[in-house]
Design a protein around this nucleic acid. Structure first.
Length: 193
DNA sequence: AGCGGGATTTTCT
DNA sequence: GAAAATCCCGCTT
């Protein structure tokens, strides 16, 4: 295991509400054969086991199993009959915690994202199901180790707190008042302001 | 710009 | 059997 990833893991083995803002500005690197796509994370939400809005709230099930596993793996879920969304698992093993990636900005290989999505511009990656489709993420990558190809998480230096907006989460019916949504204030790719 | 409904299937009650 | 960590389209203003 390389040194950079050990450092990454250390920052992920913490409560999801600490990790979620930490992931802003970090990158995802997706490879398709010899082609590379890089994106920058600009919006996240934290979910934890004691949180009524979380899939892990009612305990470990076949669906949420990955959330309870080691940090630094990918939790992918299927919802509304047609969409995949992806999360970075956080916390210690046995804790059901993860950070939902809600929006990213293209950095490299935008044309490949466009091929997956069949749209252009902001709506390419400004939502959790949109970015998952753009990056070709589905159930096959559920449980994937994010230190490995074809999908890697690359940590970047933490952003200044004054660049980040903190709000309540989107699309949930429980724990609506918990302020666990974080986004880079000036990013045009944020799903909703 | 904002609202309302339909798509479509896994998951748990 | 109902709800779901969503998206897209069409309608109204």
């Amino acid at each position: 295991m390389d040194m950079n990833w050990i450092k990454t893991l250390k920052s992920l083995q913490q409560p999801s509400c600490n990790v979620a803002p930490r992931l802003l500005g970090c990158e995802l690197e997706r490879t398709f054969g010899n082609k590379t796509v890089r994106v920058r994370i600009v919006e996240t939400e934290a979910y934890s086991q004691t949180d009524a809005a979380s899939h892990s709230y009612k305990g470990r099930t076949p669906r949420t199993d990955i959330m309870f596993g080691p940090a630094g793996h990918l939790y992918v879920y299927f919802t509304y009959g047609m969409h995949y969304c992806c999360n970075v698992v956080t916390g210690l093993e046995g804790e059901g915690a993860a950070v939902l990636i809600r929006a990213v900005e293209p950095l490299e290989g935008e044309n490949i994202l466009e091929t997956q999505r069949r749209v252009q511009g902001i709506s390419l990656t400004n939502g959790p199901a949109k970015l998952s489709q753009a990056l070709g993420i589905d159930k096959q990558l559920n449980g994937h180790d994010l230190s490995l190809s074809p999908l890697k998480l690359v940590l970047r230096p933490p952003l200044e707190a004054n660049m980040i907006t903190t709000t309540t989460r989107i699309g949930i019916s429980q724990a609506k008042d918990v302020p666990w949504r974080f986004y880079i204030s000036d990013s045009p790719y944020v799903s909703k302001k």
